[in-house]
Amino acid sequence: MTVSTASTPAPALVREPEGRPQRKGASGLLAVPALAFFVVFALVPLAGAVVLSFADWDGLGEVGWAGWRNWSGVLTDPVTGQALLLTLKIMVVSWLVQTPISLLLGVFTAGTQRYRALLAVLYFVPLLLSSAAVAIAFKAILDPNFGIGGAPGLGFLAQDWLGDPDLVLYVVIFVIAWQFVPFHTLLYQAGVRQIPTSLYEAATIDGASTYQQFRHITLPQLRYTIVTSSTLMLTGSLTYFDVVFVLTGGGPGTATRLLPLDMYLTGFSANDMGGASVLAVILVVAGLGLAFVLTRFSGFARMSSEQEGL
């Protein structure tokens, strides 16, 4: 047992474990700055959202008490229901679109062929762009008059993509896929590279076709990657905001007013911070609930994250 607490700042918080007198632990105080930042800027606001959901506040003046008024107001507003439905729709469709593409691309880019490595370098370029850049770029590309539809032979692409309430949601789903598929491709690529080569060698000797190898080796071996990627995708779809905000602003009408967007617009455009906080609480509950269900069903004690939408 060393007595070298000289340079250890205040070891008061560190209790010596009875069982192992040999090991002198690091001071818990070292965790305090990180913890403080996290508590002040993430946990406190989280609790604040619950408090403000009962408050009457326009974002500038004094904060008043509203009781359950915000809750009854938001929950009876048809826009809320629509936002929830849209969010659910975009979540499911995005998953259905992005998962097969990412999986196949991941398998594809994990191959050793030179051209595949080269393609992979280009595939990941969208990851470098900010959501604002992606949205602005697609706004120009999808312009019915001066966008890509103006090219000879591509006239069918000259649609009012962002102005047609029936089309716009699919446009949003496409742009989001464009932005996020590369990330999930990376996950799958890493997953495929973990699969032991010997499995493929044995299968080849047994005369298994490429498809059979994919079906009976690659897919089953990737099941944890599928869980990880799907969890990130599904929880991430609760936070699609930046791209949609810049691309459509929630419109036309309320055609792309997803839950986070509904929250932002309620708070910062309609100056109803109380109502927006109710939506924030719904968002948190939905996120935690989804993470819980997903980790339960996948039988996988892994926490999820919303990194995708940051």
Binding site: L13, V14, R15, P17, G25, A26, G28, A31, A34, L35, F38, V39, F41, A42, L43, V44, P45, L46, A47, G48, A49, V51, L52, T235, L238, T239, F241, P260, M263, Y264, G267, M273, A276, S277, A280, V281, L283, V284, G287, L288, A291, M303, S304, S305, E306, Q307, G309, L310
Partner: peptide
């Protein structure tokens, strides 16, 4: 010690918090 162990769980929890939900507070 208990303090650092619970710190770790708190950070784990942090991964599940959607940033967007905290913007108003």
């Amino acid at each position: 010690g208990r303090f650092v162990r619970s710190t770790f769980s708190v950070f784990l929890l942090g991964l599940a918090i959607p940033t967007h939900a905290t913007i108003i507070p």
